[in-house]
Structures are given as C-alpha cells and as structure tokens.
Design a protein around this nucleic acid. Structure first.
Length: 204
DNA sequence: CTTCAGATGCTCT
DNA sequence: GAGCATCTGAAGA
C-alpha cells in the first residue's frame, strides 16, 4: 500500500521513525527502483537551529519546506552531493525528514550503474556493504537532483509504500519483521549548538 | 578497522 | 567570501 499525504502531515519525529522499513520507489525510464529506508533524521523549523528554515526562515532554497507535506525537498551540499528530504507537518510548518540510508530492493543494476558506473559483480565487498548508507549515495543511486526538488512523493513516478506488492514483487522474508529502531545525535550539524544534541536520528 | 585531505559549487551575507 | 544535513581514496594501525 502506498503512503498518502496523511502519513507525512504529522509530527516530524513520528514520520522519521515510522518511515523506517518503508520502501522509497522511483520509476526511472519505466524501471522501478526501490530502496528500503534504514536511517533518517528529523528537522523541525520551529525549534531547531539545524533546520534550514529555523524560525520560519524563508529564502529561495527553503521555499520547498513550506510546500505541502509529502513534497520532496532536495538540495545540493558540499558542491557535489544531493540530500533528499520528505516535507512533513501541516503545510507552512517548515519541517522535513532527511533520508540518510537504505538498502536496495529493486532495480539494483541501475542503482549500481548510477553510483559507480560499474556492475554489481565488479564491486568490492566494502563497496557493497556501504552501497546506500549515506544521503548523497542514495540520491546518486536513485538519480535524484535539484531537478526533482519540489516533486510530489504521492505521484506515479516517486512514492513510498509499505510492501513491494505494488511493484509486482514479493517482499523478502527479512523485511517482514518490524525493525528495532535506535536513536542518536544527528550527523554533520555541530554548528547548531544545543540542537546538535537532539536525539533526532533514527536507524535500525 | 581508523583518520584525513581534498573535491566542488550553490546559497546567503 | 564563508560555510556547508558528504563522499572517496590513500595511508596508517
């Protein structure tokens, strides 16, 4: 079953927690790419110095955070990588869930070529183990860039779902037991003072 | 396994 | 002009 707007229109930390284990699907050139989400972070504009839209800060970049829940917020970081977020809360409450990691479930050959311009069989064990364990890696594999900033997550080519039946695939056995979720500090925001210590990173 | 430097360009001041 | 919600490869332990 696909996730609707109501899923995203809730407390950001709840969404960050509950989206773990769900599948992010992108249909690219007719081919379904699917990633099971394993790591997220919550960013809440109202309270959070680490959020780009802290105190409702409105600039060209943060405009997407004011879009309806269920919108993709994608920005360029460090001049060469992209980060994907899901906009959350009621429309106009600038908040989002950063997608930090996942595991490939469909379209592995494409995901792999997007990331390494090589075949899965040619990757080292280290490369396989670290395949999608970072926000930039995930965007690169899925071919998501600023061109997709502001796109709906409720559409026909980019969406989330509960299971892989939507894609005509069987859900693997290891995906059937609910993940045990851990929390921790968010990564790479040491500048954000007390907010750097909020336990708003979720993973399993 | 760990640390570290360097890449690279957009965004806001 | 400064800073950034990162990744990679090389080198060391």
């Amino acid at each position: 079953m696909r996730l609707g707007r109501d899923f995203f229109a809730r407390d950001t930390r709840t969404v960050a927690r509950e989206v773990l284990g769900k599948y992010l699907v992108r249909i690219l050139d007719g081919i379904p790419l699917a990633v099971r989400l394993t790591e997220t972070e919550a960013y809440i504009g109202r309270l959070d110095k680490a959020c780009h839209a802290y105190h409702n800060r409105r600039t060209q970049r943060t405009e997407t955070l004011f879009a309806p829940p269920g919108t993709a917020y994608i920005y360029l970081i460090y001049g060469m990588h992209h980060c994907l977020n899901f906009v959350t809360e009621a429309e106009g409450e600038p908040s989002a869930v950063l997608i930090r990691g996942g595991e490939a479930r469909s379209g592995l050959p494409i995901l792999c070529r997007n990331r390494f311009r090589r075949e899965w069989a040619d990757l080292s064990a280290y490369q396989r183990k670290q395949f999608l364990n970072g926000p930039g890696k995930l965007c690169q594999a899925l071919g998501l860039t600023r061109a997709e900033n502001g796109c709906s997550l409720l559409g026909e080519t980019l969406f989330l779902c509960d299971d892989l039946a939507d894609l005509g695939l069987e859900t693997p056995p290891e995906d059937r037991t609910p993940p045990v979720i851990h929390t921790g500090r968010r990564i790479g925001i040491d500048y954000a003072e007390e907010a750097a210590f909020f336990p708003w990173r979720y993973f399993y």
